[in-house]
Amino acid sequence: MSGTDLLVDGVTLTAGAHRLVEDVSLTARPGEVVGLVGPNGSGKSSLLRAVYRVLRPSAGRVGIDGADAWSLPVRRLARTVAAVVQESGAAFDLTVREVVAMGRTPHKRLLDGDTPQDADLVESALAAVDGTGLAHRPFDRLSGGERQRVLIARALAQQPSLLVLDEPTNHLDIRHQLEVLGVLRGLPATVLVALHDLNLAAYYCDRLYVLRDGRVTASGPPAEVLTPAMLADVYGVTAEVTIHPRTEAPQVTFLPPPPTGPAKSEHNPEQRAPS
């Protein structure tokens, strides 16, 4: 597994008269984990779909090692880019091992069987997501979190040079969130990931792009991007941002708004109930 240079250059995406993403540019390099953050509906998933070639830009381009992604042959694209998406509700009538082995398909010719190398890669991918014990279980009987780990393992078995993930920590408990993001952090591949959890994004991402209403409003290292002013402006919340003494990453603490509704009257011991 190696990395690839990703360039999103002035990409605009439309659906009818509605603009999903407008004039977005970003870069990601081999070995980097680049995060997309922003409120629901800000355009993160749409932008990822343009990168893994589901939504064609109406303007701009997606470049993969200098080539336009939409000009690449399907087979080459499948060997280069792996995606883990949110809409993964397909009920495979397969075992977990068979689902993960599907990640090897782009590297095979028609009717090719599995090789010992394929088997080793499948085993390694399962182990990376703590899924070895799931190997023989039916995929369609797994919990949501188990399915998510299996789909990430399938992407790892594909050995892409560009890995695109849309909320990969959905449904995962905190231990598996940390393990999965730790695996991504250690890959030589280029990783582009949309995350809701800003503290996970701050710790595991090299750079962040903040989207709001389909546009990039801030970008850079997490310590420069995650500021109380940005959080108030983009998310509409009050927060404190400190540097964690052990991780040295920004730590966001959200402050709840004051209670709303009628104020409670103070108890007055001299006040008597009407007779």
Rank of each mutant, 00 (worst) to 15 (best):
M102C: 13
V193D: 12
G41T: 13
A194T: 00
G182E: 01
S219I: 06
D233K: 01
D93L: 14
N170R: 04
S46G: 13
S71D: 12
V33T: 12
R175Y: 13
V183M: 08
R215Y: 03
R154M: 11
H171R: 06
A201W: 13
E98G: 14
L255A: 14
G113M: 10
R53C: 13
T105N: 02
E240H: 10
A249F: 14
D118M: 06
L20I: 11
L226I: 13
G220H: 00
L20V: 10
A263E: 02
D197M: 04
P188N: 10
E266F: 11
H18M: 05
A249Y: 04
D130N: 15
Q148F: 11
A50L: 03
H196Q: 15
D112L: 07
Q177I: 09
P258G: 04
V193C: 06
E179K: 11
V164C: 05
Y235A: 13
W70L: 06
L195E: 14
V216Y: 00
A153Y: 00
A153N: 10
L48G: 04
R79D: 14
S124C: 07
F139E: 07
S88I: 12
L184N: 06
E22H: 15
T4Q: 00
H18G: 03
A194C: 09
L26S: 07
V252E: 04
R141P: 03
G35P: 12
H136G: 14
V252C: 01
V85H: 00
L26N: 05
R97S: 09
G16P: 12
E266C: 13
A83I: 10
R137S: 11
P259G: 02
D197K: 02
V193H: 05
L165C: 15
H196Y: 12
